[in-house]
Write a protein that binds this DNA or RNA. Sequence first.
DNA 1: ATAATAGTTGACTGATTAGTCTAGACGGGT
DNA 2: ACCCGTCTAGACTAATCAGTCAACTATTAT
Lengths: 205, 205
Amino acid sequence: MPRVSDMKERLTDAALDLMWENSYGTTSVDAICERADAKKGSFYYFFKSKSALTAAALEAEWNKNKANMDALFSPTIPPLERFDRYFDYVHDRLAELEKECGSTLGCPLLSIGSEVSTHDKVVRDTVDRILDRKVKYFESAIRDAHAQGFIVAPDPEAKAKALFACYHGTLAQARIQNDLELLRDFKQVAKDVLGVKRAAIASSS
Amino acid sequence: MPRVSDMKERLTDAALDLMWENSYGTTSVDAICERADAKKGSFYYFFKSKSALTAAALEAEWNKNKANMDALFSPTIPPLERFDRYFDYVHDRLAELEKECGSTLGCPLLSIGSEVSTHDKVVRDTVDRILDRKVKYFESAIRDAHAQGFIVAPDPEAKAKALFACYHGTLAQARIQNDLELLRDFKQVAKDVLGVKRAAIASSS
DNA sequence: ATAATAGTTGACTGATTAGTCTAGACGGGT
DNA sequence: ACCCGTCTAGACTAATCAGTCAACTATTAT
């Protein structure tokens, strides 16, 4: 088997970077090729369309992040702490990206998914699948928290979906308003959604 | 002053419809003109660019809906009931649109805003401004609910932003997954976020 | 060394894009 | 009747788009 090329990865990386920073629609195949230092021919050797490349890019990103997610949501960590760590992690990553590109980027799954969902089944199904996987981390943390008596959550799946949606909404707002600070208060919002008993709140006015 | 034309409104209506159903990027000026039964010349007589038209369309949509929002969030209605009515209203409207176009569309401010925010200052600022106005309805309802002792919300602005983000996140998920049912449970989520005292919950398993 | 496979090149196509421009149609005020 | 400002018509441009293709190069297993 001759030649081993990293072109495929260069292309998916380039595509995700550009689409995350801008959008699916404004990211042209030419621009992806330029950033990946590829030519058109290589692009269409590996991917049959821009849409297929996008789906592949999202899957690749997921694979890169999976180990990280597994660690953040490790059953060895107290369940409610998993959320705090996860929210911190996302915040820090977005802060890094903000330094690089000057904008608060939010979640690529959400922005690309929302942009494309009504007219691109391939990408939409991919986004759906990945979101499902992510929500499972929430779900099992919630189930553990319930079992350990930290919260009351007889329906962990519904709770997980609700919290997930709230978090992504906050990420979307942060992107639109270009303001990472909107994520700051989310840990408390999460506790409200989860129904964690409030301890001493009435300290500040 | 000769001639009064409804073209401007036809164009903004057409633009919003198309962009809501699909996206900013996939909605071409030609397509907008076709749906509005206009010619290119008319388009650029009224609007200096696609971007300007989009901003105008979003503002126009806001103006159409403002009276409705005022009614839904009327101070004559008990504050927590305002939210329930609003969520019902949005649900019903999205259900209608779903019948017409076969997809759950979510919130156009969010999808267009998220798509465009990093590279179109005109549209982005417009979206920002309108979102700010909408969140004010939440804020004053929360303040009233606090004053009347239904909830504890010493910082109504923060609470309003949090609830708003959660709601929009849920709308975005519904769009991506093409599933309006995701909105069904939101009233309870809203109560959790708001910190409404739970009454009889432990009825179901 | 050579053949077969894996990957690369870049010119090309035809469709579509946002936006321009000139000529003229319409309709109310006088 | 006719003028003038509002609006419309639609051909046009130049750029950009996704995608195609046939020729080419590099690598490795034999």
